[in-house]
Amino acid sequence: MADVQVLKKRGYTLGISLGEGSYAKVKSAYSNRLKTNVAVKIINRKKAPSDFLEKFLPRELEILASLNHRNIVRAYEIFETSEGKVYMVMELGVQGDLLEFIKFRGALPEDFSRKLFCQLSSAIKYVHDLDVVHRDLKCENLLLDKDFNLKVSDFGFSRRISYDESGRMVLSKTFCGSAAYAAPEVLQGIPYNPKVYDIWSMGVVLFVMLCGSMPYDDSNVKKMLKIQKEHRVNFPRSKSVPTECKDLIYRMLNPDVARRIEIDDILEHSWLKGKPKGHAGSKKHHQDGPSTSKNESKEEARHVPDSENRTATKTGSESRCCEDKHGCAGPSRQANPRSAPEAKPNDYESD
């Protein structure tokens, strides 16, 4: 049965394509029950690689169904047909992803950055308390709703933490995510605490929000790793980043995993506790987002590459195809209406 008919029977009117690959695609749809637009990810089991079906997909489905947080993309419904197709109906990030937003608008105002980062921290605190880790936090996977609230998406590399007989966390051993957002211990192939890895990625995200550029150049991973291990974080002179915020970023980007700040301390940090200064909490701000001059946004956009800019290619005006480690193309693992990153084979693995 065609997708249109399957979804129509469930009360959805199929819309435009948001991304498509060899075994999966993402489309918009209108839900008659919810009275709103949604994103539908459709996976064809007959075309998907075996390890995706045995490992990645079950984890994502189980974890998505268990999460309920205002700053995490909501899964409204997940169902499968006898023809081997999985349908994941999810919340649609109507304002697109954070990367595209920053590339268009430039560096974000401090108060707006604080608002978004507080929402991100709240979401990560929630999943970490459930012993769930994301392992692929990056601007492309952070969506914005109609009121410019942040929504964490793409749980394709997430997993539940396991513990050994003595109660110690079993460390992850394989690379997950994007090099530009990856912690040094992950890049070095050292067994790592995935919760601590998420914190590093959050530090990179906050830097990009406030500076409109990446903190490290991942075109030379060896050189980048050397800079990271020396705990060097260079802020652009053209950007006025508050001292308290620099301190928070510096503590998140600590190469010493034992000294890297934890999520509870992030939420209590003085910068995150700061009060908004007018426009960021105003009604106009929530409707229109931060205001940035065209010249400023164009200049900064040149310095905010995709985190996988050396492996990603655009397949359309608002979609990119991705490729798993077997070279089987498919759309973003979470319904992301603006971007679906493309990775080289072996870029991603999961333990």
Rank of each mutant, 00 (worst) to 15 (best):
G15V: 02
L18Y: 12
G21W: 00
V26A: 15
K27V: 14
D51T: 09
L61E: 07
I63S: 05
L64F: 00
L64H: 06
S66P: 00
N68Q: 09
N71K: 01
T81K: 02
G84F: 07
K85Q: 07
G93C: 05
G96K: 04
L98T: 04
K103H: 01
K103N: 14
L108C: 09
P109A: 09
C118A: 13
C118S: 15
L120C: 04
V127T: 13
H134E: 07
C139T: 14
E140Y: 07
L144K: 05
D147S: 13
F148G: 02
K151W: 06
G156T: 07
D164S: 09
G167Y: 01
V170T: 09
S172G: 10
S172W: 00
F175R: 12
C176L: 06
E185I: 13
Q188S: 14
Y192I: 10
V196G: 01
I199C: 03
M202T: 03
V204S: 01
M209R: 01
N220K: 12
N220T: 06
V233C: 10
N234K: 13
P236I: 08
R237Q: 13
C245I: 04
Y250T: 15
M252Q: 05
N254T: 12
D264V: 13
I266Y: 07
K273I: 03
G274C: 07
A280Y: 00
S282G: 08
G289M: 08
P290E: 03
S293P: 02
S297T: 04
E300S: 08
E300I: 13
H303M: 14
V304L: 15
E308I: 04
C322S: 13
E323F: 01
E342T: 11
